[in-house]
Design a binder for these strands. Structure first.
Lengths: 342, 342
DNA sequence: CGGGGGCGTGAGAACGCTCTCACGGCCGTG
DNA sequence: CACGGCCGTGAGAGCGTTCTCACGCCCCCG
């Protein structure tokens, strides 16, 4: 191996053609699995390719095909917290799974601050990728507008706050929250509080809306005492629960807008001597791994991640292939998972 | 904006040249900041570029320069666990920081199973990137060999198990473990146990070696009862601590090879009625965020992540620029952070 | 036995950029 | 005043592919 490794650049189509005794065009046909090649020629080319360990040059190919067969998942989050979010890991796994049967590659781009967003935007617009899936939970960034203006295929992971004409896929957060709240009411609970997500995140807003709708439908008057805003973290959930216990000590159920927060709430409830689900029923959201390990295991709302990632890829590739011109959106149904906490 | 957005492909250098009234070459010079351009020409080109919102086509450029100005961080981990590792997030942040002043982009590639590794390998060898930084904690994968054979610039994050001729950067794990152990001994502890990392991870091995060396230097006989293998997780640390308390109830100090494991150990020690650091002193490793929040705050070993990522980039770019032919390695010093647990 | 229609193949023009080279115009020097 | 050199510029040749044609060949049908 080291014997011939003084070679500095990789072999080209031409060299393969010479070795195989055919023309460049024929080699290209073989490499691209075109049917119009004789078995002998195909075999000769195959051998030559193997002998030279030829790998097609992506740049040259992309230059003419205008395709890179690569899509980017852009993580436009200010802090590194996103990495520790199991939801994020699931999305990456789902996307990779959805692309496994294709020869499309997925690359991740992080864009923590304005500067990195700028850099990521440039990267994308230079033509490194065919399309972008954007994960940005707080949506005050410029990347979407920039990419739309550049005509770059784009799908957002999560419904955007404003009504920009852009494709997106989201879980039915409101529906899931409604499911959870209805479940609590159906269990005979009378005072159902909620620990909501942050107001600047759509998922938080939607889950709060679902909770309110369910209560309203059941004839309950809206009670601001019962709503405390959390930040989707365990610590935030604990603090919110403490606040709730002060504000409304009579509560007998809590819908918590994320599992980590629910775990924090569970901890505070136990410390306060409230039995779960005996005294207080708790329902979380996300079906995070932690929901299974908590004590008691958390009744929660699960999102169809598999389906969501699949749809994201579909919507994106439709744009890439220009199959469609109008931007599509899709809301995927959520489901209640009953465990022990409610 | 929608007015002219029927335009499907982006403008080319030629169109900019026509609009600016100069030749293609001059536009190229301006775009690439060549000094040999008159101010007037430069201004005209600038205006034309802005008017057309011209962005150079990376593929075309790379085809001739043989540079993509992109490097990949490949995460070659079987499970998604790596995302939740704060160490990993720090590495990404560090690398991005080290590249912030350059116009080199960083993309992340995940390669969970054999199949995805294959895909990532192809992606890299097709010439999408100029070099690769590989993070693979378990090192039984084929990617390194494949990339080396292809002559792709490569730097490993972490010392490899075998002695392949490949560049790598690692923290001084053995030195840090020695520091921790010496600290425990200097505090008057007589029976210092350890919860090690997994045997198939170099970091685990090195930290164990450092622990043993420190003990040997202090004249202690090696006692296999005092060594229990953990898996770097909190749960694993707890289990290992339980085991240790059974095996060697007289222990008065534990060097734990990772902070999450140390947190688990702390929990078990408290449950067993042992005061930390009164009865048992505990030192962790990594200086993870959790080390600050634990009770008591964890004395631990910190790695110079900033320096490590900086060096990785240096070694990689040296290879990319062919500044050097021999593979370099670098071990970065670790440091003891004294808190309350020891 | 002649003519039409695939089918496998090769020649050559793109794709959008960089880079070398050559060419005028201006300066300074002898 | 002539001549060499430098500086800004443009022409044109690639970079490694794909893809459109056009061209022989063989086979089948009339």
């Amino acid at each position: 191996m080291t014997g011939t490794s003084t070679r500095v650049s990789s072999p080209t189509l031409d060299e393969v053609a010479v070795l195989a005794g055919v023309s460049r065009a024929t080699v290209s046909r073989v490499v691209n699995d075109s049917p119009r090649v004789s078995p002998e020629a195909r075999e000769a080319v195959r051998a030559a390719v193997a002998a030279l360990s030829y790998v097609p040059n992506r740049m040259a190919r992309s230059l003419v095909t205008r395709r890179t067969d690569t899509i980017a998942l852009v993580l436009s989050e200010p802090d590194a917290r996103i990495f520790s979010d199991p939801f994020f890991a699931s999305i990456v796994r789902g996307l990779n799974g959805a692309l496994a049967s294709t020869d499309i590659n997925l690359v991740l781009l992080t864009a923590r601050d304005e500067r990195e967003q700028e850099k990521a935007g440039r990267f994308v617009r230079q033509g490194h990728v065919d399309g972008v899936i954007l994960m940005s939970l707080h949506s005050h960034d410029v990347l979407p507008a920039q990419l739309i203006a550049a005509g770059m295929p784009l799908v957002l992971c999560g419904r955007p706050l404003d009504d920009r004409p852009v494709a997106w896929v989201d879980a039915d957060n409101a529906g899931g929250a409604r499911l959870a709240t209805e479940h609590l009411l159906a269990g005979g609970r009378r005072t159902v509080a909620t620990i909501s997500g942050p107001r600047d995140m759509v998922a938080g807003l939607d889950r709060l809306a679902g909770y309110r709708d369910a209560l309203a439908d059941a004839g309950h008057a809206a009670d601001p005492r019962l709503v405390v805003e959390g930040d989707f973290t365990e610590g935030g959930g604990a603090r919110a629960m403490e606040e709730l216990l002060v504000r409304a000590p009579e509560l007998d159920a809590v819908f918590v807008a994320s599992d980590p927060m629910a775990v924090g709430a569970l901890r505070v409830l136990r410390a306060a001597g409230r039995d779960v689900p005996g005294d207080v029923a708790v329902v979380g959201f996300d079906d995070a791994p932690v929901a299974l390990r908590s004590d008691p295991p958390l009744t929660t709302v699960t999102q169809p991640l598999e389906e969501m990632t699949q749809v994201m890829i579909e919507l994106l590739l439709a744009q890439v292939d220009r199959t469609t011109d109008d931007v599509q959106t899709r809301v995927c149904p959520t489901r209640l998972v009953r465990r022990a906490s409610a």
